[in-house]
């Protein structure tokens, strides 16, 4: 073989090997980039949503502002996906989020998909919250209905006495109506409370309840997504054992992002499928004060210089939010921007 022919063979061989390798490498890089970008966006969104979700917590009473949670979640998500002001892309993104789960101490809520009418009269995907769904367990022998919490507190409905008992499960287990087995007197020993498997049963009940509800609402989303041209079959992914442990440990949130093709032009590359979990942080409120300036009332946040000259009557009446102040007819201060 002459040298020139040899060179041509080398060129053809090099190109035929390097070009497919390069194409494959670029596809892999692109998939990794998309995965990473969406993972970060979801983590940020869940983190921001759970920051300040607990509005009041005096040790026992907790109020979760679910609408605030969804607003924060989607706003941060859209920012990090580069579409904070593009409602078309935002609606498209919402079709890839079948459910958002909020785990509360004595039950859970699921944000599920519905079809609503958009501003321009066209149908768009909307999100609604379910009512609180309890962690319910029915004891086979007695027919008692137990409602669990994420801690040791439970409530029990006894169909024989038609009474509800509440308290720590260790305390209830000491009561004769739960610890003694005397069928003639309608007393059934509670296997759940006295059998030593309370934590295991509680944990399995919570996980099963959540899984069943999420699967149901994911199926609801499947039928809605089809109306918006999504043929992907949404399903609950396998959730790691450690992730479940984090979810049912305390107030937390679970968001699922699924079904978006890595490349819109080439579905062969697969679909994005990720979930993110975040825990709540307790929000310590700062206070607001209304100070009249002439005939116009203005509200200020703690630390504003204008509060230095405020009268004692103004400072004696703090408000918990800027919204409370505006509801009293006060304008925001132009210095401290509350």
């Amino acid at each position: 073989m002459s040298f020139s022919r040899f060179a041509v063979v080398v060129i053809i061989l090099t190109l035929s090997l390097s070009i497919p390798t390069r194409v494959h490498l670029r596809e892999t890089e692109m998939v990794m980039d998309v995965k990473q970008r969406y993972k970060i966006a979801m983590e940020m969104a869940v983190d921001d949503a759970m920051d300040g979700i607990v509005e009041t917590d005096n040790g026992s009473d907790v109020y979760l502002n679910k609408d605030y949670l969804l607003e924060q979640f989607y706003h941060t998500l859209f920012i990090n996906l580069g579409c904070p002001n593009d409602s078309d892309i935002q609606n498209r993104v919402k079709t890839f989020i079948p459910v958002v789960l909020l785990v509360d101490k004595d039950g859970y809520y699921i944000s599920f998909s519905t079809v609503v009418e958009g501003n321009d009269g066209l149908s768009v995907i909307g999100k609604n919250w379910t009512d609180k769904l309890p962690y319910t367990y029915v004891e086979e022998n007695s027919g008692r209905i137990f409602n669990f919490t994420l801690g040791d507190e439970i409530s029990v409905y006894d169909p024989y006495t038609n009474m509800v008992h509440e308290g720590r499960y260790q305390d209830l287990a000491r009561l004769s109506m739960f610890s003694v087995d005397d069928r003639s007197r309608g007393m059934y020993r509670s296997e759940l409370l006295c059998g030593g498997r309370f934590d295991e049963i509680r944990r399995n009940t919570i996980i099963n309840s959540i899984t069943e509800s999420m699967t149901y609402y994911i199926n609801v989303h499947n039928s809605i997504a089809q109306q918006f041209g999504i043929s992907y079959k949404f399903s609950l992914p396998y959730v790691e054992e450690d992730d479940w442990a984090r979810t049912i440990d305390d107030i937390s949130m679970f968001a699922l992002f699924q079904g978006m093709p890595y490349a819109s032009t080439d579905v062969r590359l697969g679909y994005l499928n990720l979930y993110t979990i975040g825990g709540a942080r307790i929000y310590k409120k700062s206070y607001y004060y209304i100070v009249p300036e002439g005939s116009v009332p203005y509200y200020h946040k703690t630390g504003c210089e204008k509060l230095d000259s405020a009268g004692a009557s103004s400072m004696a009446h703090p408000y918990e939010s800027a919204a409370d102040c505006a509801a009293q007819g006060a304008y925001p201060c132009s210095d401290c921007h509350p």
């Binding site: 904070p84 939010s321 800027a322 919204a323 102040c325 505006a326 509801a327 009293q328 007819g329 006060a330 304008y331 925001p332 921007h337 509350p338």
Partner: peptide, 27 residues
Amino acid sequence: MTHEHLTFVPVYSDDGVFLNDYQTAYE
């Protein structure tokens, strides 16, 4: 860079009567 600040502004009628309502807006 974008800074969004949520404000709560009371609603008054044209003749200055407070309407017991407020609006939210992003500045």
